[in-house]
Design a protein around this nucleic acid. Structure first.
Lengths: 231, 231
DNA sequence: CCAGTTATCGACTGATAGGCAAAAACTCGC
DNA sequence: GCGAGTTTTTGCCTATCAGTCGATAACTGG
């Protein structure tokens, strides 16, 4: 008799969609299952919630087995999935997180673990594919009204470099002109004063910027229906 | 020995912050605990996740004991709370939902259950106060970039009535002029053609509107960093 | 018919996004 | 060292939209 019919409470696991822009493409960290069920399918890192820890602690603990957790520039809770059929053998509730790794680091990962473009996911175990896509959508939305960009970008960068990261994450082109103006007006970016020498092909040296804040900030108090400004 | 040290997996409950604008104030549905722990404190409706059901099914089932679930115009998952200390006696993970009830219905509620202004919460059990506030914030954010308003409003209404609902939910004044123009331009509202006769004090009769869509729609493709328009 | 009240509409302002093109600053080859 | 090519930066123009104010419309009550 399977566990699911005997237990009175579900097991609980934490999962993470860890995203990074690599080679100009938004990718997610996956590991390949070496046992049943879903042998050979790809899965998100994660594991059981242990007594005495929070879910956030749990996902960090399990992630530590796959990447250097210090490389994570941002993490937030995504959603909790509870479909009784989401795991074939067990009653297993999963709380998913979104993790972001800046483009300048290349974390060591184990043998069974690699990055995959989120737009071309391999055969995925359980509902992990849906979770990865949900992570992508959350990231895309937040790029527009928060400063999450800081979690995708290196400590300092040129506008072109940042443009590459944004367009990879968003899945469409963004104009460098506009990106710079918008982020500067919102005071998310500040110039470091340095400049980056041009490549072999020449060109004007690019100004170097950094994000003004290190943590997540909601920048757009949604223009609409704003409180009346007592000016 | 408390359960929490013997069980290998946490119990899992669903909770809901059910919000409604009542008497011009945003209120949340609470019931008063009649037993320990937190005897006398106020709590969100909810209860255990049972085998074979999803969390959404679970919260609807438990809510049915407090309100007519058909009165809920919208429901969405809020967050999952897992602090081991959130319940004094038990290892209990909670997944919270946000529920919205239109202003024109007055659901029957049991003896122990009443509405409380979210801005003046009574002494709350466990972390339920934080969850209620998280629900308020989620609602406020979504009022600006989605059509959630439909879940707060009656089937049809005048702009002044809608203005009252929005300002109660947002916690600040909104101009009627602006509200109408913004919602109309976004094609969230459509006129019914009818008009509402003025009150005793006189005044021009108000046009009656309804929300164009019944379900949740994200309206603002965040102006920023929009994909290039191939016009 | 007039004063008071409420709702609607139009006009103006300010902020911001998006696009285009010119100017700036460099490399390379001749 | 000069011009062609490249890349980045800047300024200008336009369109859209939010926010405000004031005028007008449509009613009630005396």
């Amino acid at each position: 008799m399977p566990k699911s019919t005997t237990e009175s409470r579900p097991a609980h696991e934490s999962l993470a969609a860890v995203l990074q822009v690599r080679d100009g493409v938004l990718q997610v960290l996956l590991w390949q299952r070496a046992k049943q069920p879903s042998l050979g399918a790809w899965a998100l890192p994660g594991g059981r919630l242990e007594r005495g820890e929070t879910l956030e602690h749990s996902i960090r603990r399990h992630l530590a087995a796959k990447v250097d957790v210090r490389d994570l520039a941002h993490m937030e809770q995504l959603e909790t999935r509870s479909d009784p059929g989401r795991h074939p053998e067990e009653w297993l509730v999963a709380t998913a997180y979104l993790g972001l790794v800046p483009a300048d680091v290349d974390p060591r990962v184990p043998e069974d673990t690699t990055w995959h473009p989120v737009d071309e996911l391999p055969p995925m175990a359980f509902d992990h594919g849906e979770i990865a896509l949900a992570g992508r959508e959350r990231l895309r939305a937040k790029l527009s009204y928060t400063n999450v960009g800081f979690a995708l970008a290196p400590p300092s960068f040129t506008i072109s470099e940042l443009r590459g990261l944004y367009s990879a994450a968003l899945g469409h082109d963004v104009s460098a002109t506009n990106l710079q103006r918008v982020l500067l007006r919102r005071q998310l970016l500040e110039p470091t004063g340095e400049t980056r020498p041009p490549g072999r092909a020449g060109g004007r040296p690019a100004a170097v910027f950094r994000f003004a804040a290190a943590g997540l900030e909601v920048t757009d108090p949604f223009a609409v229906l704003r409180p009346p400004d007592p000016r």
